[in-house]
Design a protein around this nucleic acid. Structure first.
Lengths: 225, 225
DNA sequence: CGGGCCTTTGATTACCCTCAATTTTCGTGG
DNA sequence: CCACGAAAATTGAGGGTAATCAAAGGCCCG
């Protein structure tokens, strides 16, 4: 990501950053609520970001990882989705007034935030494309492959295997499928020797094959600078 | 939207705003290209914003309307989608360096932009939910109802009827359906006396019925302030 | 007046959802 | 450590729905 220049330093150091811990199960943010915190960045643990619909359905918008902001997109108004701590979660939070952040307080922070927001937007659009225009097998493969790449960036991926403490029902709500069909899709991926998902662990068995199948291009996961 | 305060005025007046015209068919922005303009806001005409996928599919991300920014989400990096002028299009563009805009140049503009970006994020997330978790009939109804509400805000909706200069194929790519099935869905909506789409004109025949059917709540279309 | 794109309809297929039941896993308390 | 119950994962059967394949009609533009 960006490095602060010499002139940025005073602004940065005067920003009140606090570390916070949320136990597993905490609803960190709720859809429709006015945003009270300025900025929240995940540093450790797993979260799930979702929308609840009036028709009883749920849509998982994202699984925010280490380094991701979880309150972008609602800087001035109401949260457009809920965020739940799936495991114990650690965050850094900046609690000064947000518009100050973006206008004069610290140009470095303003730039960084805009980069993070832009990247999240790109990720969200790929997610939309994934749900709208890929078949379930490729769709599931794409989602897990993207998470693996993001974990790689966050330096928490080893041997193409990672913890993934979510249920198949959570995955289904991220894929726009039923839980039952998601189960069958995961079986197909396992039998095709592409991905094994078992007991909360995801293993990318054939990463090149997955990339071929999904035309995965990680360019959108980089930070704009 | 927001009103500038007295202290905002000098900053605003020093920002170089230009009006631009794009003839129908102009590709205003292309996916993957580095953003060269700072900010582009639609003031008249129709555009379509889409992603092209490697599997040959296309996903329509949004139909940007009067008052919408069409380069949010890529302020520092590369555009995550293409934008095509569907009709002749008029924009206002701000061509100063973007990070200047957001850090000290004009606090009023910074706030306004953040509000617009936040709103667009909310719209995008509703779109995701729509594609992921609504059935085609409700999905099509929701999309057209949303556009009607947004046009209402832009003060270009009359008698629940509006021009919509796109093909059923465009609509299909926004709904995640085939063009053929989209045609059947539109027939169903017509026969249910809910919406009539014909010759590039959309008429909401039974707006209350549509709102009931889709649980439509326009809260996410407001500006955060 | 063509020609091409768009719209519309029909027939068939493939896929995903629904309903139902069993097995496995996991957390909790005995 | 084991027993129990609840939640999650898994499998089967069947039906509904959207995709696919095919073709005809309408509309606009040159």
């Amino acid at each position: 990501m960006l490095e602060p220049s010499q002139e940025d330093l005073p602004g940065i150091h005067s920003v009140p950053v606090v570390e916070r811990f949320y136990p597993a199960g905490t609803l960190i943010m709720e859809e429709g609520q006015v945003a009270t915190r300025s900025l929240v960045m995940v540093t450790a643990g797993w979260a799930i970001s979702y929308k609840s619909m009036q028709n009883g359905q749920r849509v998982v918008v994202d699984f925010p990882l280490r380094g991701d902001l979880i309150n972008h997109g609602s800087p001035a108004g109401r949260a457009y989705r809920s965020v739940l701590a799936q495991t114990d979660l650690v965050t850094f939070e900046i609690n000064i007034e947000r518009q100050g952040l973006l206008s004069g307080y610290s140009p470095f922070l303003a730039r960084s935030i805009m980069s993070l927001v832009a990247r999240n937007y790109g990720i969200a659009m790929e997610h939309l494309a994934n749900v709208a225009r890929r078949r379930p097998l490729e769709r599931a493969a794409y989602l897990l492959l993207e998470i693996a790449y993001r974990l790689e960036r966050a330096e928490t991926l080893k041997h193409n295997r990672f913890q993934f403490p979510f249920t198949q029902s959570d995955l289904a709500d991220a894929l726009g499928l039923t839980a039952i069909h998601t189960n069958r899709v995961l079986r197909d991926l396992r039998e095709a020797e592409l991905i094994v998902v078992r007991n909360g662990v995801v293993e990318l068995v054939d990463k090149p094959g997955l990339i071929d199948m999904t035309f995965f291009d990680p360019a959108y996961l980089s930070y704009g600078g």
